[in-house]
Amino acid sequence: MTTHPEHEQLSAYADGELGATERVAVEAHLAACGKAREMLAAIRATLADFAALDEVEMDPQVGFAIRSALARERKLSSRTRRYAWAGGAAAAALVGILSFAILGGGPNPARDASGAGLGGGPQLMAMEDLDEDSALRVLETYVQENYAFPGARGDMGGDDAAAETAVLTHAPPAPEIQAYSAADATTFADCIRTIERESDSARLVRSIAATYKGEPVYVLIFEIPAERPDRVEMWITARDSCETRYFSQANVNR
């Protein structure tokens, strides 16, 4: 072989992508051409450097960001459909069905320290301004209150995988609902309805009026017994716009 192989043939050769005839021709050329050997060595050294790259780790916050973006997208498309159908009449009807506990004014929506009506757990969270970590604890609290873990709590060392999945021990409680004010109720019902519309069996089981990073929000916990019995979802939506600020989910068994 007296001519240089096409340059990309050296890369394809390094990848093992050449057919038998081309491979023999390239090898014959390599045997006779120092420059081609140097090029091949450089390509292989470069590929060896690529191999030194570790597998990319994904920060869990990226997953949250993706799901939050999708939740917003779903709401937008859901709203588009809803406005095309029937306007807000059904939402107004829903307000009549839901029983709201109307809170006093002011930015801190938490009830008194007894937590009456809040199920004895999340009220602690509602009294503080939530962030990602404390929001997750609200969800964990709900799961701990309503589900049992396969092993005794505090003895989770034997089977981590099993211990991480909660098992329902009783029917979820009736929805406990808070709203900031009566005037807020329509917006709030609209929010709930928007989320529930995305899943026929979605059922609101806990609602907390709170603040998230300083913004008034609703923390909404849903169960989806028919479609996703293995999941409890938590949506944090802005009080005024109903836009999703945070989304998370917990894996459970029934």
Partner: peptide, 15 residues
């Protein structure tokens, strides 16, 4: 791909 690898090889000092 070959051109890209050649460029990388130069940048990484292999070429």
């Amino acid at each position: 791909l070959h051109r890209a690898r050649t460029e990388m090889a130069r940048l990484l000092g292999h070429l």
